[in-house]
Amino acid sequence: MAASEAQLKKMLSKYKYRDLSTREILNVTSLYRDLKPLMDSYVFNDGSSRELLNLTGTIPVPYRGNTYNIPICLWLLDTYPFNPPICFVKPTNTMTIKTGKHVDANGKIYLPYLHEWKHPPSDLLGLIQILIVVFGEEPPVFSRSTAPAPYSMYPA
């Protein structure tokens, strides 16, 4: 069930631009219904942590004739939307990350759109649409092959 405006405003009580953030989150979650806003503790590189809102769920990515539900997590800093979200691919245990130009081994996502973020016009909807295009060309995760590993002919 999508979070209501009141619930979001409560979650975003410590955010500097609460109304702007609330409006964008409502907009994006109404279009990409599987993305859910959650409050959680985000640990920064320097070891400090902060209670931040993240949008967690899947986005539909067409790839070679099929549509895959790629799991992502978008963390909104408390200065959102004037700072870009911190974005991750969140592989399940049946998936492996495919590192590449846009994704590192931790699943962190790097995009010129994030690097050159400026609000407006940069926003979550634009970000997700670019993720769908980029991941449609180069999927960030693949499903692990379920074929059993061949037994070695010689016992160890």
């Binding site: 967690t56 099929n66 895959y68 049946t94 492996t96 693949f142 499903s143 092959s145």
Partner: peptide, 14 residues
């Protein structure tokens, strides 16, 4: 993920 859509990914041999 919270009972939402099941995450899927392309098979690696594509």
């Amino acid at each position: 993920l919270n009972g939402g859509t099941i995450p899927t990914a392309p098979p690696s041999y594509t």
